[in-house]
Design a protein around this nucleic acid. Structure first.
Length: 312
DNA sequence: TTCCAGGTTTCCT
DNA sequence: AGGAAACATGGA
């Protein structure tokens, strides 16, 4: 978490914000990564720029994100009367910082990966790609649940139905931008309301509501998870929740809490990527993956993220 | 029709 | 603790 008390890590540029990026950063690689998502609801790519609705406290806003120079991003507010609000500006800057994972120094990862047979090609091809995350805990949990045991295309369809039924639409400059449904909103829904909205898998509906209640009641928070002694304990805090198994737990720890050693080892996409890179006839066994990843210590999440990227 | 998809729960030694 | 079986839905 960047320090925003004594001095901003970002700076004002008229009504816009300038946000510094690390050396190991490529706007184009991150843009191309976002572009691989088909049917995405929660951001828009247009003319080399990213557009995203962001909630800061009770305030909703929409921003445009683009490269400013080699070392900075520029963030422009779209039709935002409160663009001079310090809390809104700080909140947006922190969100962007978190979304792009700008606080991680990737140099050690690249030093390790350039000698790793599985990662070598990926880190060359996608140099500057960050683990673009899901800062909101409920959104991260939902995306994990929605993605369980179905193909990714259908998962995006379910997410779109969920967001467009229970999220909030913001219209700016003639375009619509969506905010993910809040846990507070979904906590008050019934499974029937979700199935009627097109979430055809009943179990997922129950899980989406159950986790919404926990999070809305403050019984599952990012702060609690970050206080865990280690990844094993954080995993346990998550897997005791109905609908969250080992895969979803590590997915959330990787994309939201950003534990570097989070490792969704049972992930089918990871298996397919390893199979592809090594030219295997069949998907690797768990033991084989443990062997291949022995040198990834504290970079398991980034290794997984880069291997996923290969598949698209 | 069969198989698989960014798994989880339940039940069983 | 660790493994097998049941589970649900859409797309290729």
């Amino acid at each position: 978490m960047p320090n925003t008390r004594s001095s901003h890590f970002w700076s004002d540029h008229g009504p816009d914000l300038l946000i510094p990026v690390p050396a190991e950063f490529s706007f184009a690689e991150n843009y191309n990564h976002l572009a691989t998502a088909t049917n995405e609801t929660l951001y828009t790519l247009r003319g080399g720029k990213m557009y995203k609705a962001i909630a800061v406290g009770r305030q909703d806003t929409v921003v445009e994100i683009a490269p400013y120079d080699e070392r900075r991003l520029i963030v422009r507010f779209l039709e935002e009367p409160d663009a001079d609000s310090p809390t809104l500006r700080a909140g947006v800057a922190e969100y962007v910082h978190d979304w792009f994972d700008l606080g991680t120094d990737l140099a050690p990862f690249y030093r390790m990966a350039k000698n790793d047979p599985l990662l070598k090609q990926a880190v060359e091809s996608f140099y500057g790609l960050r683990n673009m995350g899901i800062p909101d805990l409920y959104e991260a949990v939902c995306w994990g649940i929605l993605g369980q045991q179905i193909n990714l295309g259908f998962a995006y369809t379910l997410k779109r139905r969920f967001v467009e039924s229970f999220g909030r639409a913001l219209v700016r400059e003639g375009e619509t931008y969506w905010l993910f449904p809040t846990a507070e909103r979904v906590a008050g829904l019934t499974p029937e309301q979700l199935t009627e909205a097109g979430i055809t898998t009943v179990k997922k509906c129950e899980y989406l509501i159950g986790t919404a209640r926990l999070i809305a009641e403050g019984e599952l928070t990012k702060e609690q998870l970050l206080q865990a002694e280690n990844v094993k304990q954080a995993e346990k805090m998550l897997t005791r929740v109905h609908g969250i198994g080992p895969w979803t737990a590590h997915y959330v720890l990787m994309r939201c809490l950003r534990l570097p050693e989070a490792f969704p080892i049972d992930d089918v996409g990871l298996h397919n990527s390893i199979k592809y890179v090594l030219g295997l006839d069949a998907k690797p066994t768990r033991a084989h993956i443990l062997e291949l990843s022995a040198g990834w210590s504290l970079w398991e999440s980034y290794a997984t993220f880069y291997l996923w990227r290969i598949l698209y």
